[in-house]
Simulated scan of single mutants.
Amino acid sequence: MTVDAEHRLVRPGRHRRTIRTPLQTLWRDSLTVFWGDWLELRVRIPQVAASGLVSPLIYILAFGLGLGNAIDRVSTPSAGDSYLEFILPGMVALSSMVISFGGTTFSICGDRLFTKTFEEMLLYPVHPLALYLGKMMAGVVRGMLTAGSVILVAVVFTGQPGSFLHPLFLLLLVLNCAVFAGLGVIVGLNVKSLESVGLFNNFLIVPMSFLGGTFFDPASLPMVLKGIVYVLPLTYTTIGLRAAAYRPLAEFPWYSFPVLLAVAIALAAVGAYQFSHQQD
């Protein structure tokens, strides 16, 4: 066989190795967008990990240790051995929600309204969904860093590391971060000022913090209130985390995964559409 013939045989294989499927291209582009945020985020890991720790600690001390002692005298929690243990999974869910949403929203607002670097990102030759996924993944990392700090606190209080490092617990936590980071992306793309971010936080995140099942068992509510509480995605996260931490696998609410996944997919569709029509 001649050298030219061998060259012709090798070239097709070389070309096949460089061909990527649309999903591979989307994933690579998403990682590229994420990497830009990670370069900035990695130098602030201690700050990010501690930023969402104050509120959960206050709730743990005030409700778990303060009010919890009185509650434990008159009732038994539906999960965990004490009211403190009952609310700890909710505190993990709460911290991941607040930082995933807030960190992502303020990051995009800062790029849009102050540094004016957001327009450059819109010029990237990538699919709008990749822009959304990259920003969302950065929000997931922020949320998981803070949630990891709260998990450490929960392990210290309970002495049960296996409960808070259960695979279902961590998987549900990542999905919760994806939902609220995605919501943060959409809000960040639409607000016109930082004051508007405060409105979303006051009328969406703060009410959900108290109504998302973090301090009570949603199953004990009247039917009318259940209709409100079970609309909130944080409720499904809290229920799932609590079950993963304290209850047997047979009692795990598997419906939490498809509900949160459906919300995450819906937000991804809205976010991709928003990026494709963004005028900044």
Rank of each mutant, 00 (worst) to 15 (best):
E6A: 15
V10T: 13
R11S: 09
I19V: 12
L23C: 13
W27D: 05
W27I: 14
S30C: 10
D37K: 04
E40D: 12
R44Q: 12
I45S: 09
A49C: 06
L53W: 04
P56Y: 07
Y59M: 11
L61S: 10
A62F: 14
A62N: 05
A62M: 15
F63R: 01
N69P: 06
D72L: 08
A79C: 05
A79F: 00
D81T: 14
S82V: 05
F86N: 01
F86D: 05
G90I: 04
V92I: 06
R112G: 00
K116G: 03
E119W: 04
E119A: 03
Y124D: 04
A130E: 05
A130K: 01
L131A: 00
K135T: 07
T146G: 11
Q160D: 14
P161R: 11
S163H: 13
H166I: 03
N190V: 14
N190H: 15
V191M: 10
K192H: 11
S193M: 11
L204Q: 06
I205K: 02
V206R: 02
F210S: 07
F215A: 02
S220H: 09
M223R: 15
M223I: 14
M223V: 14
M223W: 13
V231I: 12
Y236M: 00
G240A: 15
A250L: 09
V259M: 12
V263L: 06
A264P: 06
A266I: 09
A268C: 10
A268I: 13
Y273T: 11
